[in-house]
Design a binder for these strands. Structure first.
Lengths: 153, 153
DNA sequence: TCATTATTGCAAGTAATTTGCAAATAGGGG
DNA sequence: CCCCTATTTGCAAATTACTTGCAATAATGA
């Protein structure tokens, strides 16, 4: 059905693995859930459909997806010590994190590609991936919460 | 002496706290050590001068520095579950991480400032900080390890 | 259907970090 | 310079987030 499911199925076959109900459920949950869930969040949500699903299975599946390059673990400021799992898509997948409400948004920043190329050229390195995280106040918080005051008597 | 030390001293006074020998030692260690040490690394190095220094004191001091905005905890791919502590400097402090040797380098990418402004304008948000991490092969690894092959019979 | 072997659930284990608490000590007041 | 008191420390135990061993379960190919 989903792209993720298809890709995962292909990897399973290729490796002589098995597409179990748990894996299917976790994959569906991953596409249903908002981006960047933690393993806990995936588990909690998936457990609504299969209460017997174990948290270790979620971790194991997530790690397997990571090894297959379909998912990428990340950690964001202000979100404790939890790993968040990001569907690994094309390059140029960036984030905006509101330092007030801690909302985490996907963010387009196509210029990052050029920044990488520029850096690679200047330092003779090979850049394979890039991740930009912007921190600030989201539109809502920027309104509700007066931004930094300019000059003040 | 160092900027970090001075700034820390100021915060201590402002909060009616105390500048203990341990704090001084940890601050000096932070400036002496290469960038991004883990708490363990700070502790191991500092313990050369004060073997009685406890790891929890290092953690506590690091968290205090974090609260004061002088240091920033980060986690990098391929570096396990350890937090690395980055001296929080000016904006525009970015990183290059070699996916082969796991070397972590500071990286200049002045254009990020412009990317942030552009994003802020387009999405009506306020961007306060930005962090770019580039992944790839550092100069040495790019040589030793043949990069991705172009066309092949 | 059956055998094979990947995958799961469970419970115990780890590693990094945090916390409670009594002992130690910085730094202001005298 | 010494004392007083609140801040900080060291230690050990606790917690958190994640991992692993192993016997039971179940997905596939024959």
């Amino acid at each position: 059905m989903t792209d993720l499911m298809e890709r995962a199925r292909a990897r399973v076959r290729a490796a002589g693995g098995r597409m179990t109900g748990q894996r299917r459920l976790i994959l569906e949950t991953l596409t249903a859930l908002p981006a960047h869930p933690t393993a806990e969040e995936v588990h909690t949500r998936a457990a609504r459909r299969d209460p017997a699903l174990n948290l270790s299975t979620v971790y194991r599946t997530l790690h397997w997806l990571e090894a297959e390059g379909l998912v990428e673990p990340r950690r964001f400021r202000g979100h404790g010590r939890h790993d968040h799992f990001d569907l690994a898509g094309a390059r140029g997948h960036h984030h905006f994190l509101c330092t007030h409400c801690h909302r985490l948004l996907e963010c387009d920043a196509p210029q990052v590609e050029a920044v990488s190329r520029s850096y690679a050229r200047r330092h003779a390195v090979k850049v394979l991936d890039a991740s930009l995280v912007l921190y600030g106040l989201c539109a809502e918080c920027a309104i509700r919460r007066a931004p930094v005051r300019r000059g003040n008597a």
